[in-house]
């Protein structure tokens, strides 16, 4: 599936964020930067989508209705098909315990709300470039 990712020209990114406006904000900016974006608003749909398609990066909110972000993280990293997908976690909480837990389940990046959109784009660029090499 790495092959598939490499051969694809456009990078596929999934945005899992229950706040409609925030989701719209991220999706808009990622689209502008040339990424193919899938907007998802709850954990259950995210899991369903992840079982069907391969994404390069998942932008993931932690506090989600249905299944929370941590479980999605585990689901992605625990499945050999999806374990290559990078995860950027968005959280309103900045407690160290959450960070540790995020590392255990395998998040690649952390962004604390309110975050800078520019920084998110930079991170995603960096991750996808690494993938290309």
């Amino acid at each position: 599936m790495i092959e598939a990712a490499v051969t694809r020209k456009e990078k596929r990114i999934m945005v899992v964020e229950d706040d409609t406006n925030l989701n719209k904000l991220i999706s808009y900016n990622l689209s502008k930067n040339g990424y193919t974006v899938e907007s998802i608003y709850d954990g259950i749909s995210a899991k369903e989508k992840l079982s069907k398609c391969i994404f390069d990066v998942v932008v993931l909110d932690i506090m989600l209705p249905g299944i929370d972000g941590f479980r999605i993280c585990e689901f992605i990293k625990g499945n050999p098909v999806t374990s290559g997908t990078f995860i950027v976690v968005l959280t309103a909480r900045a407690e160290p315990l959450d960070k540790i837990y995020g590392n255990i389940v395998g998040a690649d990046y952390y962004l604390t709300k309110p975050f800078s959109v520019a920084k998110l784009i930079d991170i995603i660029k960096e991750l996808t470039v690494v993938r290309d090499r």
Binding site: D19, N21, L22, L25, I26, Y28, N29, A92, K113, P114, F115, S116, V117, A118
Partner: peptide, 12 residues
């Protein structure tokens, strides 16, 4: 949450 949106859209 609203602050993130405000900040993000202003930036955009």
């Amino acid at each position: 949450t609203p602050l993130t949106s405000i900040k993000g859209f202003v930036e955009t």
